[in-house]
Simulated assay, not measured.
Amino acid sequence: MESTRVDRWLWAVRLAKTRPDAAGACRGGRVRVNGRPAKPATMVSPGDEVRARVGEVARVVEVVRVIHKRVGAADAATCFLDRTPKPTVAQTVPVAARDRGAGRPTKRDRRMMEKLRGSRR
């Protein structure tokens, strides 16, 4: 049965932008193969389930075909089945509305808007 390293496979099927990114995700505990944490040298073969969070995107894929070198995007898409669950309906976020012509927001208004957005500088 054919197999390859998980970091190489993630890079080859274009789930990771670079191979060091794929290896870093493995070392950081953001890649699991068949439910177990994966090191960069963990071997994957057809039928394995790979859960990877590379960058901001979390993906759940099933290995269909093992490739060792990076190929075109169309060919890479045939090497895995995407089993990533659909995102849930996002909760509606209240929008800070101001009256037209009210002028610039005060410091208090700005802090209230930041609190609604959930961001602080």
Score class of each variant (00 low, 15 high):
residue 65 R to P: 07
residue 56 E to S: 14
residue 55 G to P: 05
residue 118 G to F: 02
residue 64 V to L: 14
residue 44 V to H: 10
residue 121 R to F: 09
residue 94 P to D: 01
residue 49 E to A: 03
residue 53 R to A: 14
residue 71 V to A: 07
residue 77 A to F: 03
residue 79 C to N: 02
residue 20 P to A: 00
residue 48 D to F: 02
residue 4 T to G: 12
residue 111 R to F: 00
residue 96 A to M: 10
residue 48 D to R: 02
residue 49 E to M: 07
residue 85 P to A: 05
residue 90 A to K: 02
residue 120 R to G: 09
residue 51 R to A: 15
residue 60 V to L: 06
residue 68 H to C: 05
residue 81 L to V: 15
residue 90 A to T: 11
residue 105 P to S: 03
residue 89 V to D: 05
residue 96 A to L: 01
residue 99 D to Q: 14
residue 2 E to I: 13
residue 54 V to S: 06
residue 77 A to K: 13
residue 41 A to G: 15
residue 117 R to Q: 13
residue 116 L to W: 03
residue 51 R to G: 11
residue 27 R to M: 00
residue 20 P to F: 10
residue 107 K to D: 04
residue 121 R to P: 10
residue 46 P to H: 11
residue 72 G to W: 02
residue 90 A to G: 11
residue 87 P to D: 08
residue 119 S to C: 07
residue 29 G to D: 02
residue 30 R to V: 06
residue 45 S to Q: 15
residue 18 T to R: 04
residue 17 K to L: 08
residue 110 R to Y: 06
residue 56 E to M: 12
residue 58 A to L: 14
residue 19 R to Y: 09
residue 7 D to Y: 09
residue 7 D to A: 09
residue 92 T to N: 08
residue 50 V to Y: 02
residue 106 T to Y: 08
residue 12 A to W: 04
residue 60 V to E: 12
residue 114 E to D: 15
residue 51 R to N: 13
residue 87 P to K: 09
residue 38 A to M: 03
residue 48 D to H: 08
residue 72 G to H: 04
residue 44 V to Q: 10
residue 119 S to H: 15
residue 60 V to D: 02
residue 44 V to L: 08
residue 56 E to G: 12
residue 118 G to R: 05
residue 93 V to F: 04
residue 70 R to D: 01
residue 63 V to N: 03
residue 79 C to L: 07
residue 48 D to M: 04
residue 101 G to A: 06
residue 79 C to H: 09
residue 16 A to S: 11
residue 68 H to K: 08
residue 15 L to G: 11
residue 120 R to F: 06
residue 2 E to C: 11
residue 69 K to Y: 11
residue 39 K to M: 15
residue 13 V to S: 06
residue 108 R to K: 15
residue 19 R to W: 10
residue 70 R to E: 00
residue 115 K to A: 14
residue 53 R to M: 14
residue 95 V to E: 06
residue 55 G to I: 05
residue 45 S to L: 12
residue 77 A to V: 10
residue 3 S to N: 06
residue 19 R to V: 10
residue 95 V to K: 09
residue 78 T to D: 12
residue 19 R to K: 05
residue 105 P to G: 08
residue 83 R to Q: 12
residue 94 P to S: 04
residue 18 T to L: 00
residue 82 D to E: 04
residue 119 S to W: 13
residue 26 C to E: 03
residue 121 R to Y: 12
residue 70 R to F: 01
residue 63 V to K: 04
residue 7 D to L: 09
residue 49 E to N: 10
residue 10 L to Y: 07
residue 55 G to L: 06
residue 106 T to M: 04
residue 11 W to L: 00
residue 121 R to N: 12
residue 14 R to M: 01
residue 3 S to A: 13
residue 89 V to S: 03
residue 36 R to T: 05
residue 48 D to E: 02
residue 86 K to F: 11
residue 115 K to N: 09
residue 78 T to W: 01
residue 93 V to K: 14
residue 90 A to N: 02
residue 28 G to W: 05
residue 106 T to S: 13
residue 60 V to S: 01
residue 34 N to G: 15
residue 118 G to E: 11
residue 101 G to R: 08
residue 4 T to V: 14
residue 115 K to S: 01
residue 83 R to S: 00
residue 109 D to L: 07
residue 10 L to P: 07
residue 49 E to K: 08
residue 49 E to Y: 00
residue 11 W to Q: 01
residue 95 V to D: 01
residue 68 H to Q: 12
residue 24 G to Q: 12
residue 102 A to P: 01
residue 89 V to K: 08
residue 28 G to K: 04
residue 11 W to H: 08
